[in-house]
């Protein structure tokens, strides 16, 4: 564990808490579109469920296990809230990204490009590829509405920072322990790249107090 990875994981936690906070806030203005993509959240739940199949078999540390349990539990809880509790505030007409294509694409690629052709390893690889593109429905929704609430932009910023710090962590680990993981690196680079446009607008507008609006 290094500082980059620790802060990255903490930013990931922060992003989930921001999302839960936003959903609590949304409840008080029921009927209004929450502007959170259900598809993205469902994809994240799928990512965690397929990645942590080693939850009971592969013990790394208490930290590792606790985080895995938290990510699985919180992602399922968020999906549950959006699907049942706050169903009225979720507008599927804005959530139109074709998620089945990225699921299919990630599954096909995981079957072809993996480290070992075993059920667990292919599921893990699938989760890596799927996580790389899981934010697309959310970003697509943002493009469609052309604007976002401040709290939604903070959520995306926390997620993007978490990904960016993982890139730094890999460079650090390569030099300090000769750690190499091409599948994770390339998928991670693609994932971080997806946030570039968002980061630009976040820094030039939201942090200066302006509304998040697409040009």
């Amino acid at each position: 564990m290094n500082l980059f990875r620790l802060v990255a994981d903490l930013m990931h936690l922060v992003s989930i808490f921001i999302l839960l906070l936003k959903m609590q806030k949304t409840r008080s203005v029921a009927g209004r579109c929450s502007r959170i993509s259900f598809k993205t959240q469902a994809l994240y739940a799928t990512v965690f469920l397929t990645r942590y199949t080693d939850l009971f078999a592969n013990f790394q540390s208490l930290y590792n296990t606790t985080m895995k349990v938290f990510f699985i539990a919180s992602s399922l809880y968020i999906v549950f809230l959006m699907k049942f509790k706050f169903k009225a505030t979720n507008d599927p007409r804005l959530d139109t990204f074709k998620a089945q294509y990225v699921v299919g694409g990630a599954a096909a690629l995981a079957l072809i490009v993996n480290y070992a052709f075993t059920v667990q390893e292919v599921l893990w690889t699938f989760s890596i590829y799927l996580e790389a593109v899981a934010i697309l429905p959310q970003l697509f929704m943002l493009t469609k509405t052309g604007e976002a609430e401040v709290i939604t932009t903070h959520y995306l910023f926390a997620l993007g920072t978490y990904r960016g710090l993982y890139l730094v962590n890999w460079i650090y680990r390569y030099w300090t322990e000769y750690y190499v993981d091409w599948i994770v690196w390339i998928a991670g680079a693609v994932q971080t790249g997806l946030y570039c446009d968002f980061f630009y607008i976040y820094f030039t507008k939201v942090l200066k107090g302006a509304k998040f609006e697409l040009p």
């Binding site: 990931h12 592969n58 790394q60 540390s61 590792n64 895995k68 667990q120 390893e121």
Partner: peptide, 10 residues
């Protein structure tokens, strides 16, 4: 060697 055994990142 099981490639999964050494995976320590989340």
């Amino acid at each position: 060697q099981d490639p999964h055994a050494k995976k320590d990142e989340l």
